[in-house]
Amino acid sequence: MYQDWIWGLVGGGLIGIAAALYLLVNGRILGASGILGGLVDGTERAHSKERLAFLAGLVLVPVSVVPFYSSVDTHLTPNLAVVIFAGLLVGVGTRLANGCTSGHGVCGISRLAPRGMVATVFYLLGGGASLLLFKHVLGVI
């Protein structure tokens, strides 16, 4: 547990540095759901090259730089019905709210933006309620 906190802090620092770089150099907000969502629904075709380059880095770089990468595992549930339902909720929810953990959480809170803070409170509430419902009440996870 103690080690988890250290890795959490180090990884979090890297996330923050990435977001700071994207803001200060490219002048853009690092929000994963917005970058992907704007591409797939065609609402923000502008900067699509920049978005694709960001996603390419996100997919390709961790494989090559994280030393213990060969041992990492997402431990995702094998229950595909759960996977599909959860994916749909994450997709529709983040686009309705216009942001996710990175955009509202990291970029919004650090800007002291009320929208980012409110969103973060509600997705953490949703996450806690989800574990309560699906794990402790229904026992599906």
Partner: peptide, 8 residues
């Protein structure tokens, strides 16, 4: 989003 995040 939080419900889906917690679920998977």
């Amino acid at each position: 989003f939080g419900l889906g995040w917690g679920l998977a």
